[in-house]
């Protein structure tokens, strides 16, 4: 998979042509919308609550549209001017601010009820200018975010870490800034559908709300926890019922659409067929 982070700095990469893609590509629109929806779900607001939210790396405002649909008022922050101009052309409801999130956020303390971010914060690990230090930029970002969130407000930040080091750097920076919370991995067994969400809470977590669960797993997956596969007890015969059920289970874990198991699963058809 190609990584845009390797191509150019964000303010250069997201030019008019790139911004145009977010207008026309239905796949991009669908992915962005789904991720924003999941972020909002992780913020755990009650149905009908109208809140004041921050969208970091709002781009053309696709994620903001999800917030607007749920009745929230939002402020979008992005480093790319062309993306923001597309956003105004689309008549998004949110207020737009052009700013590098790796520098201090231009908001007062205790402003927002929550923050979301879709596929943006891995850009902060880039070194695009002399004097850019990812560790420092990430800490500045998280400290700024901590300041402008209200007490115990949550932030759900989806991102694409390039490797384990980056993942650790980002989580550690958040913890250093004072956030509590952790990483949630949706569809951990699928290469394509796997998504990382950093779920943070400004200050101690609210004891009244449960820890959000990762999709398709029994419990929230922690970044430190590692599961080792048990030793295999021989392989099932291909086409046998046990083999079919196992395969279906695996596809289910990958987030694919799979027919439910029934007493007919893996049975031979009768002779009339």
């Amino acid at each position: 998979m190609s990584r845009p982070e390797h191509v150019a700095p964000p303010e250069v990469f997201y030019n008019e042509a790139e911004a145009e893609k977010y207008l026309t590509s239905s796949r991009m629109i669908e992915v962005q919308t789904q991720l924003a929806d999941r972020c909002l779900q992780l913020l755990q607001f009650e149905e009908g609550e109208e809140r004041y939210l921050l969208d970091i790396g709002c781009g053309t405002g696709l994620s903001g549209d999800v917030l607007t649909d749920k009745g929230h008022v939002w402020v979008g922050l992005d480093i790319s001017g062309p993306m923001l101009h597309v956003a105004t052309a689309r008549d998004v409801e949110g207020d737009l601010v052009e700013r590098d999130a790796g520098e201090d956020l231009p908001f007062q303390a205790n402003t927002f009820d929550g923050a979301i971010s879709v596929s943006a914060i891995q850009w902060l690990c880039n070194v695009d200018q002399t004097g850019h230090n990812p560790r420092k930029r990430l800490l500045t970002f998280f400290e700024g975010l901590y300041r402008c969130l209200r007490k115990s407000a949550r932030a759900a930040l989806q991102f694409y870490p390039e490797n384990a080091n980056q993942l650790e750097l980002i989580t550690a920076s958040a913890m250093r800034a004072g956030f509590s919370g952790g990483l949630i991995v949706d569809f951990p067994n699928s290469a394509k559908a796997k998504k990382y969400f950093l779920c943070l809470s400004a200050g101690p977590p609210d004891p009244n709300t449960a820890t959000p669960l990762a999709l398709d797993s029994e419990e929230a997956v922690k970044s430190t926890k590692r599961e080792r596969p048990r030793k295999r007890k021989g392989r099932e015969k291909m086409g046998a019922k046990a083999w079919i059920l196992k395969k279906k289970e695996r596809q289910r874990r990958q987030g694919k659409e799979v027919r439910p198991d029934s007493k007919y699963s893996g049975r031979k058809r009768s002779k009339k067929f």
Partner: peptide
């Protein structure tokens, strides 16, 4: 409608 707060 876009507030340009870039400082670099």
């Amino acid at each position: 409608y876009i507030a340009n707060m870039m400082t670099t």
